[in-house]
Design a protein around this nucleic acid. Structure first.
Lengths: 218, 218
DNA sequence: CTTGATTTGTGAATACTTTCACAAGCCCAC
DNA sequence: GTGGGCTTGTGAAAGTATTCACAAATCAAG
C-alpha cells in the first residue's frame, strides 16, 4: 500500500487530474482508461496501473466516474487545501510568476515576495508588496509559508534555499540555473529552461548526424 | 555505439557541461568523476557511464581534462553552433523569456516573436519586434528558425504547435499547460510550472499523512 | 624499474518502470 | 436471468536505468 510513488507517476496523475477537470466542465460523467490515456499521452495500462497504486476507483466494464476520480486525485495530490507560497527574486521571471494568476486558481497562494535590491523593496507587483530578504525568516514564519520559489540569479540561489529551509519552508521550486541539492530534507524541484533547450539541441544535432551518416534521406 | 540515449542522461550531460565551464573559469584543468558527481548531484559511476556512452575521454588514475571534455560535451549536445529560435505569445511569460539574455549567451538566438493581439504587433520587446502570427510561416522560413517556443494560453497552444511544425521548425519548447503530443515527428518538451508545484504538493501531503500515521514524530 | 595510490571504463547485478495479457466484474438487451 | 460486449485491476514479463565492483591504466616517488 505504501510503496514509494515515482515522480513520473505523480506527474501523470497531475495530467489525469487536469483532463478530468476539463471533462467535468464539458459535462462528461464517465471516462475509460484508454480515453484518459489518449488525452494525456500515456497508455491505458499505465493509467490503470498509476491509479491502482492508490486504490480501486473504476467500474469494470464502464470506466471511471469523472467527478469522484477528480476528487480522489485532488486528495492524493494534496490539492484540497491551499498552499502558502513565497517568491524570492522579483526580476523578470519572478515578476512574471507573480502575475501568473493561474497559481491561485490551482490552490497555490503567493503570500509574500522578497528581493535584495533596495529599489524594489516596498514596490507592489501584481498585488504583492516586495519585502527585503533580510525579513525572509520572520515573514515566512508569520505567514506560515510552506513552499518557496527561488527566482534569483544562480549565485544567490544556494544561500536563499538554505535561508528558506531554515525558516521552515517545506519544499522549494527553483528557477535558477543551479543544481540545488535537497537542503536539510526539504525537497527541491528545478525548472531549468536552458537545460530543456539543450535537450532539444541534442535531439536536433543527433538527428542531423544520423541523416548525414545515412546519406541525407528525403 | 548508437544506442538511444535517455533524456535523463542528456540532462545530466548538460549539468556536467555547466560545471565544467565553471571549473574552467576557475582555472581548474583536471576533474575526477567523483568531483563532477558531487557538484551535480549524480554518482561517480553515473558520470563515468554517461560519458562512456559517447567514448572514452578520461585518463585512468588522473580524471578528465576540463577543457577538452567541455568541448566534447558541447559537440555532443550540439552547442558548437547557434540555434535560431522564435517565440509565440508575448504575454507575461513570453516577455520574461525575451528578456532572458542568458539564451543568447548559451547559443540560442531569439530571431522572431509573434502574437495574435493587434495591440502588441510592431511593439519592440527587449530588442525583438513582435510580428503577427499570421506571418509565422513566412518569417520562420525566411529566418531559418529551427526551434519554436510556445508561450500562449493553453487553448491556442495545439494550433500554434501545428503551425510551427508545418512551417519547418524542428523542435518545440512548450510553456503552455497543455500536453502537446509530438507533432509530425517534431519533438516537444513541456515546462509546466503548475505540474511542478503539484509534484511538491504531493510530497508534502504524503509526508504529512505519514507523520500523522506514525504518531506525529518530532 | 618497481611499488603504491589513484581513477577510469565497463560487464554483471540490482532496482525500477512500463507493457502485456487475461481473469473478474459490470451493464445492457432480450 | 442469461449472454455478450466492454473495461478494470493486476500478476508476470519485458524493458530501462542505476549501482556495484574490479581489472586495466596512469603517474609519482624512491
Amino acid at each position: 500500500m505504501s510503496a514509494r510513488i515515482s515522480d513520473s507517476a505523480v506527474r501523470r496523475l497531475s495530467l489525469y487530474l487536469r483532463m478530468l477537470r476539463e471533462l467535468g466542465r464539458g459535462g462528461v460523467e464517465l471516462v475509460s482508461s484508454s480515453e484518459l490515456a489518449a488525452r494525456t499521452g500515456a497508455t491505458s495500462a499505465q493509467v490503470r496501473k498509476d491509479l491502482s497504486l492508490f486504490g480501486s476507483f473504476g467500474k469494470r466494464g464502464r470506466g471511471y466516474a469523472v467527478g469522484p476520480l477528480r476528487e480522489t486525485l485532488e486528495e492524493i495530490l494534496g490539492l484540497t487545501q491551499a498552499w502558502r507560497v513565497c517568491l524570492v527574486g522579483v526580476g523578470k521571471i519572478g515578476s512574471a510568476l507573480l502575475g501568473y494568476r493561474d497559481f491561485e486558481a490551482r490552490g497555490f497562494d503567493i503570500v509574500a515576495a522578497f528581493d535584495s535590491e533596495p529599489a524594489k523593496i516596498g514596490r507592489e507587483v501584481f498585488g504583492i508588496t516586495v519585502s527585503p530578504v533580510s525579513e525572509l525568516a520572520s515573514v515566512v514564519r508569520e505567514r506560515g509559508v510552506e513552499i518557496g520559489i527561488v527566482a534569483t540569479p544562480p549565485e544567490a540561489a544556494p544561500q536563499v534555499a538554505d535561508a528558506l529551509a531554515a525558516a521552515g519552508v517545506e519544499a522549494i521550486l527553483n528557477f535558477a540555473p543551479t543544481e540545488l541539492q535537497d537542503v536539510d530534507g526539504v525537497p527541491v524541484r528545478t525548472v531549468d529552461v536552458v537545460l530543456e533547450l539543450e535537450g532539444l539541441s541534442y535531439l536536433l544535432s543527433a538527428a542531423r548526424r544520423r541523416d548525414a551518416a545515412d546519406g541525407e534521406p528525403a
